[in-house]
């Protein structure tokens, strides 16, 4: 028995020592960078997307944490609603993160709606790895601008139409119906449900 243990240690001491050492190395790196990574994940991307949608906004105050939303596929997701305020402290609208399944992977969008949850101010892309020139076009004005000022919720996707008319009819990206549908579905699921829960909480 002891011989076996001895043999085992003789063979593997380097592996065990290296595992400890490397584990330590990763732990140290992670500890020293964690703050920055968390900041990047939660604040940097959020602010970057929000600045594009609503440049006047100066600050985002968290007002309602863990608002749960049921998606079309029956999944239960939570999002947190933030209040966008300008430098004078005036409320500009509400911001929250939507998530849905796109063509390649999940699509995560930051949605900003006006104070009454009546109209959309716009959306920004937090995470999307859709195909360049097709699904990726959700990052670009031609598709994005259709939502600016459109009635919040109840969107319908159509294949053809005038993209410059701002209404609840959204013209799909050519060749990227799945992604376009995902965006529309996401908004249709999230906006009314978030609105309802905000009303229940008496925030609007």
């Amino acid at each position: 028995m002891q011989d076996k243990i001895k043999y085992f240690l003789k063979q593997s001491w380097l592996l065990i020592a290296a595992s400890f050492f490397f584990g330590l190395l990763i732990a140290v790196t992670n500890a020293s960078l964690k703050e920055r990574i968390d900041y990047n994940l939660n604040v940097y991307k959020y602010n970057k997307a929000a600045k594009v949608v609503l440049p006047e906004a100066d600050n985002f105050e968290e007002v309602a944490e863990s608002v749960s939303v049921k998606t079309n596929s029956g999944k239960e997701l939570t999002t947190s609603v933030k209040k966008a305020v300008d430098s004078d402290g005036n409320a500009l609208g509400w911001a929250f993160i939507c998530e849905g399944k796109g063509f390649a992977d999940k699509v995560q969008l930051l949605v900003i709606v006006d104070n009454d949850f009546e109209r959309m101010i716009g959306y920004g892309v937090l995470y999307s790895i859709e195909t360049v020139k097709y699904g990726d076009e959700i990052r670009f004005p031609e598709f994005m601008n259709q939502f600016k000022g459109a009635p919040a919720g109840g969107f319908q996707l159509s294949k053809t139409g005038d993209k410059t008319i701002i209404d609840s009819e959204i013209v799909a990206i050519t060749g990227a119906t799945i992604t376009s549908q995902a965006v529309v579905d996401m908004f249709n699921a999230f906006i009314p449900q978030v609105k309802e829960q905000m009303q229940e909480k008496g925030l609007i």
């Binding site: 290296a18 490397f22 190395l25 990763i26 790196t29 992670n30 960078l33 990574i37 990047n40």
Partner: peptide
């Protein structure tokens, strides 16, 4: 093991 360690570190640095 060695490679995985340094890739993880590189990944963390990129993320940061």
């Amino acid at each position: 093991l060695t490679i995985a360690t340094f890739v993880t570190i590189a990944d963390l640095i990129l993320k940061a």
